[in-house]
Design a binder for these strands. Sequence first.
DNA 1: ACATATACTGTAATTATATACAGTAAAATT
DNA 2: AATTTTACTGTATATAATTACAGTATATGT
Lengths: 196, 196
Amino acid sequence: MLNLTAQQIKVFDVIKESLQSNGYPPTRAEIAKILDFKSVNAAESHIKALVKKGVIQKVPGSSRGIKLVEEISGIPLIGSVAAGSPIMAFENVEKTIHSNPLNKSVDFFLRVQGESMIDAGIFDNDLVGVRKTRSAENGEIVVARLDDEVTLKRFKKDSSGIKLVAENSSFSDIAVDESLDFSIEGRAVGIIRENL
Amino acid sequence: MLNLTAQQIKVFDVIKESLQSNGYPPTRAEIAKILDFKSVNAAESHIKALVKKGVIQKVPGSSRGIKLVEEISGIPLIGSVAAGSPIMAFENVEKTIHSNPLNKSVDFFLRVQGESMIDAGIFDNDLVGVRKTRSAENGEIVVARLDDEVTLKRFKKDSSGIKLVAENSSFSDIAVDESLDFSIEGRAVGIIRENL
DNA sequence: ACATATACTGTAATTATATACAGTAAAATT
DNA sequence: AATTTTACTGTATATAATTACAGTATATGT
């Protein structure tokens, strides 16, 4: 978005504003009218420039066929994570969510499997909004990778080392030591539950 | 949404799906193609019916000029409910949410106050998605009004009558009898938690 | 200096789209 | 039983919209 000219930003904002208030993108004529261009081609040229710079996409031949690239790439919903695969690998994406109800920036949603965080009010099948980070603060709920397994646990750190704690009395803590291939994939920032 | 016919629902869903995947509403021709109508007028007539039933709006003369009414109005987020006021009264609306991440139709979100449903995994400050109904099935979580107070409780009904049960052992059940002004405001269908 | 990008006006053609009108037929309502 | 609603096909047309082409002028990059 940084190398857009002042006029290109204006055109981009008109498109965004139209989507917001009308629910659909503007036509060339509408853009021209709003920005007081006397030729529809002025809008057309700007659209071409915006496509070239990668911030919008055009659907040729289609009326109002303009898509914001930021909208296209929604938030992936990760179902189960195949052993050993990167968490956001294509095969792990269950679907793509195009609205983020949480007030925080979320990189992906993870569908919770199992009851290990039940005492933190996170149930089987809940969707956890995750912000990707490599580190965590003491006490935060994190998505961690242990060898090939991805789990949701509370992160605890003290003089004796790092522990991953389940919020369920029937699960025991995991002490992280050198024998384990351990990494933090992200920090849980919110949840969505679709089935009450 | 209840008096839509099967075909009208199909057309409505095509519009919704187009908005979801294209970012703009479909044309009559696109609807006809997807639903295998051989005349664009079939789509046009259905659109007119949907407008008449109040679930969409048309922008005459504008290509793709279709708006979903549910998108226009947004979903109110109810904070605290003033004693005696209708739940969705203006003064109770904290803000309006323009995206519904839950797969179900939601009439309003209610911000949970207190710990009474903690054992159901519903915490203080969670947002509960509520579908407005006047009745409930045994075992459902409902938004109920008792005299002037609005609460979230599990609805239990048997031969001895109606009980409102908190999911927290330190709360006692409320037996609904004739002395109480009791009504059901809605059914909880999902939750959103913004603060983990 | 030269090419390319920006920022337009103006014209025009083809195609996309909305929308009305004329029918037919079955189902639901009154 | 009569009327209205639903659910289409088929035709037609005015207008909405995309998009190419021809210019002009200034600014920016190489």
